[in-house]
Design a binder for these strands. Structure first.
Lengths: 356, 356
DNA sequence: GTGAAAGCGCTAACAG
DNA sequence: CTGTTAGCGCTTTCAC
């Protein structure tokens, strides 16, 4: 069916070795020969099979990408970033999703290893204590994490703690004092933990009392009554919500509306992710923005560097690459009419941060 | 590094052939031998390399997926559907994106063919007259289109014309008479054309005059002044907009708001795609829903059937598989205060349709 | 500058 | 039931 190197050799009247050289090291072959070979290649429309090369121990030019889901645009955006660079540089993507299931993570890693991918770009639920990643380290298979917030492994992410801190400070600066953090069912993820830490720090620094993150079911059509009670009842109801991601923020906004709360008059909302879509909402969603596409790009670049052999593990490059976040203003946040809290001991938001 | 079949053979004290058989045809091998081999496999943690198999001409268990972009959740949802089924059935996905660029489509198809994928699932800009697809037909490489609306090729889609027709009828039933269709920069796509046909038919059937689709720049921050003029000026301004996809609808909604138009009081909006996200908007976006995940699933299943060899090209199965659409109610559509048009000669929306 | 031949990991005849 | 062998498409010594 598809022509092989043999066909070309026969057609050109040379050996397969010469054909191979014409492709991989043109300068080592007689220009006249080269020309004939090339003509045969064109005539037969020959393209060398990656399979042969791979088997020969060459680089497979394959990289594996493992994501929790594509339903969250955060990951689709990362993937977009990876794909743009990687495919322009001649690498192919093998994609697998895990639905945050550790067993599927294991399966994906195994499968991709079998396919001899040169490296892995992945997002796992919790990176720090992850036996599979330890195994990758041992096996010498290169990988770069995206979004996972850990110092122990190669990763590209924003500083989730600092980002959350910055965002919550914004809420506080707007006069909010009773601020609650909401998290999805994967509250156990390293990101969510870091974000909660940032929230807590911002609160404490303002003399406020941080609360544990309130877990919200992502997929339910309505907010659970117990959650709604937390958000609406009593004089101590929160005036602002920090949602651990944008999708959650959108679900919460819908839930609040159904409960006849107005946004932002009755409740301010701050998301996390910076989904492009959030800006199209009404009111546009205020969010702590991670540069998702860039995270994908950077992850690819780090992987490529490492594949290239520049093993700078012990060098200057830190394991965790932190990309800058930003806080996107949005009409889902309103200043609290009466500034209840003047406890802001730290001056304007641009003041010194508690940690670099 | 990774153990090969040879290592296992040596470890177990048998030939590689026996090891191979133990894996691929266990029943043909002596139980005692089998047991030993299996122990060696476990001991060495051996997993057969797909590369060897592939080269041997076996099935690669690879399928190629080519999508315009992942920035539009429509395609991410399709991909999700494909991935769920395919990876559960032991197939791997190689993903490439094209940004609607024909040259990249060509490159993607070529690349994936080189990798000996067993089939392709793809969405192209315009399927009918697509030389690359003709070439696939000739070459005998199986493929299934998603979302492309053509009768000439294997595809899974909704009936874009009928769907648009149904949606626009809904607008008409609400009293709207001046309805404009908006399309993105890929107005040339087969889908967009079909949707415009459906729009036109619904209009004409109600005695209204369909207009050409108004092209809108997707990525601009604001609506172009010329577009805005169309939408707002004069007594003949439209009261309802049919947007050829949901992302466009969202951009348009934002543009209208910035121009101080209220939705739906000043303008009704109907989208197309049924993005889950649309329901989280405020007001929730009315949309013509395509079952995107299911389209992905169905495309995979069709491909699998064809790979399986059941070449029913000449059989009963029609080339184009049409999945049912639905019209999602949403608060972006309001009934027109004064029902200007009682020209609706066709009674309720459930009446006979112009084509099956 | 070119060709012959080995071998990557595996499967599938074909012998034994 | 098991081993030997050839060969998938390719790169790469090693001779010539």
């Amino acid at each position: 069916m598809t022509p092989t190197i043999k066909d070309v050799a026969a057609h050109a009247g040379f050996s397969i070795a010469t054909v191979s050289r014409s492709i991989n090291a043109p300068h080592t072959v007689n220009p006249v020969t080269l020309d004939k070979v090339r003509q045969s290649i064109d005539a037969l429309n020959f393209r060398p099979s990656p399979l042969g090369r791979q088997l020969r121990g060459e680089r497979t030019r394959l990289i594996g990408v493992i994501l929790p889901t594509l339903a969250n645009p955060v990951f689709a955006e990362c993937l977009q970033g990876i794909d743009e660079l990687a495919s322009a540089q001649g690498y192919r993507l093998m994609l697998m999703t895990t639905q945050y299931d550790v067993e599927r993570e294991r399966h994906a890693i195994e499968t991709l290893r079998e396919h001899r991918v040169e490296g892995l770009i992945l997002t796992v639920a919790d990176a720090d204590a992850h036996p599979l990643l330890d195994e990758l380290d041992r096996a010498g298979l290169l990988y770069v994490l995206m979004h996972n917030d850990t110092m122990r492994r190669p990763s590209v992410s924003v500083d989730n703690r600092l980002a959350a801190y910055d965002g919550v400070r914004r809420l506080i600066a707007q006069g909010h004092r009773r601020i609650l953090m909401l998290a999805g069912s994967f509250a156990a993820s390293d990101r969510a933990r870091q974000r909660h830490l940032g929230y807590s720090e911002a609160m404490q620094q303002a003399g406020l009392v941080p609360a544990p993150a309130l877990e919200v079911d992502f997929n339910a059509d309505e907010l659970a009554p117990s959650v709604l009670a937390h958000l609406t009842h009593g004089a101590n109801r929160p005036t602002a919500l920090f949602c651990s991601n944008d999708l959650l923020a959108m679900v919460v906004m819908r839930g609040l509306r159904r409960a006849r709360l107005r946004i932002p008059q009755d409740m301010s909302i701050l998301g996390f992710d910076g989904l492009a879509m959030g800006e199209l909402l009404s009111p546009p969603l205020a969010s702590i923005c991670a540069p998702n596409r860039e995270i994908g790009c950077a992850a690819w670049q780090r992987l490529l560097t490492r594949i290239g052999g520049d093993d700078d593990t012990c060098g200057a490059t830190p394991l965790a690459l932190t990309l800058p976040h930003s806080v996107r203003e949005g009409a889902t946040i309103a200043a609290l009419g009466t500034i209840e809290a003047s406890t802001d001991r730290d001056g304007p938001l641009t003041a010194a941060r508690p940690y670099a």
